[in-house]
Amino acid sequence: MSVGSRTGDFPHLPLHVILLIYVVVTLYPLLWVFTIGFSGQQGLMIVDIPANATFLDRLRAIMPWPAHFSFSNFTSVFTEQPFARWLLNSVIVATATTILGVFLACTAAYAFSRFRFPGRRAGLMSFLVSQMFPGTLMLIPLYIIIVQWLGLGSNFIGLILIYSITGIPFCVWMLKGYFDTIPRELEESALMDGASTATIFYRIVLPLAKPAVAVTALFSFMTAWNEFIQAATFMDKVNMYTAPVGLRFFVGGFSQQWGYFAAGAIVTAIPIVALFLFLQKYLVSGLTAGAVKG
């Protein structure tokens, strides 16, 4: 394509400067997490400095860098507890949540976007409204439903159901927004050619909505990946805990082992980053323009 840049030929240097400044803002607190994780110690201290320090003292003190590098926190996280197993559980639960959540959201969002039916507005609104419920006293009713009614206590399926359904409203709204922007002419012509609704959905709409699906997938995955209290409440076996549950062992009650927590947090962030890297190409592929032409 000869189009060139979308926002014109803006000089790149100032853009890089802005981005780099924000990179510092983004990374600074995270570097402290790394510092704590690699320090080999357990404290959650930021700056260590005398009261009337010089400018250089202060500058050195606010640099997030461990005094001594040590991997001991990382090795302890994995050797003292079955953390690898918990990470695996998290991957299983989060992946299944993503698949189920995106599937449920796609079908519903497609119906909301393409069909006109009574109750459509009410249904869509109810998804939005559901997000407004404060979760203050939800644990006990959820426990009754999941464990007592459905018998899904200590079962990944229970967690997967909760997580994927909690994520649905956002996913449906996102996807419906994107589906709305996809021109209907494509589907109409396919319909003329005798394709079924399902075919149209899988062959035409879904590929075009890849960026949206990527966003919702990332969101679903995150929902499942970071949740702690339900996973800890519904799982009754050690080898069924997820990674956030494992992490919280380090810092509950009187024990405050932030070194372990930071190390574990860094490890649990890696799959998210990997997933994002994988989804990136869908977020930036510039689909619609190409597809309409092709």
């Binding site: 426990y143 209290i229 800890a232």
Partner: peptide
Amino acid sequence: TLPVPYDALADKITAAVPRGKG
């Protein structure tokens, strides 16, 4: 035995035990 993170243990007991689980 089942270790439960301290931050979740009380809630877990309160949810499960009165309902005959746990």
